Simulated assay, not measured.
Amino acid sequence: MTRANTPPAVELRGVSKTYGSGERAVTALNALDVVFPAGTFTAVMGPSGSGKSTLLHCAAGLDRATGGEVIIDGTPVGGLSERALTRLRRARVGFVFQAFNLIAALTAAQNVALPLRLAGRKPEPGEVTAMLGEVGLADRAGHRPGELSGGQQQRVAIARALVTRPAVLFADEPTGALDAASGREVLRLLRAAVDRHDQTVVMVTHDPFAAAHADRVVFLADGRLVDSLDGPSGAQEIAVRTAHLEEVMS
């Protein structure tokens, strides 16, 4: 549920992103306006090449927009130096990717503690163990990624993303490399983060079942927001919308 009188976690105002120049220029985002309210779960869908990943990268401050304005947790990022932008991402943005991106030489606990240490903060006693407990892996704190299943590694990645209590967590196809059971568990954890901790989650996915866990589904095509479903929607309804959009755009 959106928190009353709270500014959006992320807002994109007229955001464009162009790669290349001249005849070879490719417009990935085209004057896009979208708001991700605090305390909500939004799924971003669309055909291949629609701009989903570019939206995530610009909204998260991983890539700079060519035009328009990106605002993260009330801070416009366009005028920030690279150092200031890095600090903002470390403190206010969490990431979960299809590839778990854990450091193989570190234990689960050390991987989870890493964002805190990069931000210059020593973890409080029990803080990391408690976060691993939230994803059901307190008993795996001393295990390295190679000793964990894919689903367990992704759950460690979720704990790592949430340990700083970010303003927004971006998830890019977080279930794409997992079996069905592990994927359901990851989606349950993301949903719980929203419902129990007022976390904001923005998830890029091609999977209607995954998108059905969100409060809202937004659909992109040619770098524009072309459709949306507000309120909990079933996977079948989302699949129908997706198929229609792909048919229109083909």
Score class of each variant (00 low, 15 high):
Thr107Asn: 13
Gly150Ala: 11
Phe100Ala: 05
Ser149Ile: 08
Gln110Pro: 10
Ile103Asp: 05
Glu134Val: 07
Glu147Met: 08
Ala108Cys: 14
Ala84His: 03
Leu106Thr: 09
Ile72Glu: 06
Val70Lys: 09
Ala65Phe: 01
Ala130Lys: 13
Val135Gln: 11
Glu82Asn: 15
Ala130Trp: 03
Pro123Ala: 13
Leu88His: 11
Gln110Leu: 09
Val77Glu: 00
Arg90His: 13
Gly79Ser: 03
Arg140Ile: 03
Val156Thr: 00
Ala141His: 03
Gly94Thr: 00
Asn101Cys: 11
Leu114Gln: 09
Ala108Gly: 14
Gly67Cys: 04
Arg87Asp: 14
Pro123Leu: 11
Gly126Pro: 06
Thr129Ala: 15
Gly78Ser: 12
Leu132Trp: 06
Gly67Thr: 15
Ala65Tyr: 03
Gly126Tyr: 07
Gly78Trp: 01
Ala130Gln: 11
His143Asn: 10
Ala99Glu: 12
Leu106Gly: 12
Arg87Tyr: 02
Thr107Pro: 09
Ala141Leu: 05
Val156Glu: 01
Arg92Trp: 02
Thr107Leu: 07
Glu134Tyr: 02
Pro76Arg: 09
Glu69Tyr: 04
Val112Thr: 12
Ala141Ser: 15
Leu132Gly: 06
Gly94Pro: 07
Leu162Ile: 05
Pro125Gly: 09
Gly151Arg: 01
Ala109Asn: 12
Gly151Pro: 00
Val128Gly: 03
Leu116Asn: 05
Leu102Ile: 11
Pro115Gln: 13
Lys122Tyr: 05
Leu88Asp: 10
Ser149Leu: 14
Ser149Glu: 07
Glu82Ile: 03
Val96Cys: 01
Val112Cys: 06
Leu62Cys: 09
Phe97Thr: 06
Gly61Phe: 03
Val135His: 02
Ala65Arg: 03
Phe95Ser: 04
Leu62Thr: 13
Ala138His: 01
Ala119Gln: 14
Ile72Asn: 06
Thr107Tyr: 11
Pro76Asp: 12
Arg140Gln: 15
Arg121Ile: 14
Ala84Tyr: 00
Leu148Ser: 05
Ala161Cys: 13
Gln98Gly: 14
Ala113Trp: 00
Ala119Phe: 08
Ala60Gly: 15
Gly150His: 03
Leu162Ala: 12
Gly78His: 10
Gly126Phe: 03
Ala108Met: 07
Leu162Cys: 13
Ala65Glu: 05
Leu118Phe: 14
Gln98Asn: 10
Leu80Trp: 00
Phe95Trp: 05
Arg160Gln: 12
Ala157Tyr: 04
Lys122Pro: 01
Val77Cys: 05
Leu80Thr: 03
Pro76Met: 14
Gly120Pro: 02
Ala91Leu: 13
Gly61Trp: 10
Arg90Phe: 04
Ala108Thr: 13
Gly126Ser: 06
Arg140Pro: 07
Ala108Phe: 11
Ile71Phe: 09
Ile71Ser: 01
Thr129Ser: 14
Leu102Phe: 02
Ala141Tyr: 08
Ser149Asn: 12
Arg90Asp: 00
Thr66Lys: 08
Ala65Gly: 13
Asp73Ile: 10
Leu85His: 11
Val156Tyr: 07
Arg92Phe: 02
Ala161Met: 14
Ala138Arg: 09
Gln153Trp: 01
Leu114Phe: 15
Gly126Arg: 11
Ala65Cys: 01
Glu147Ser: 09
Gln110Asp: 15
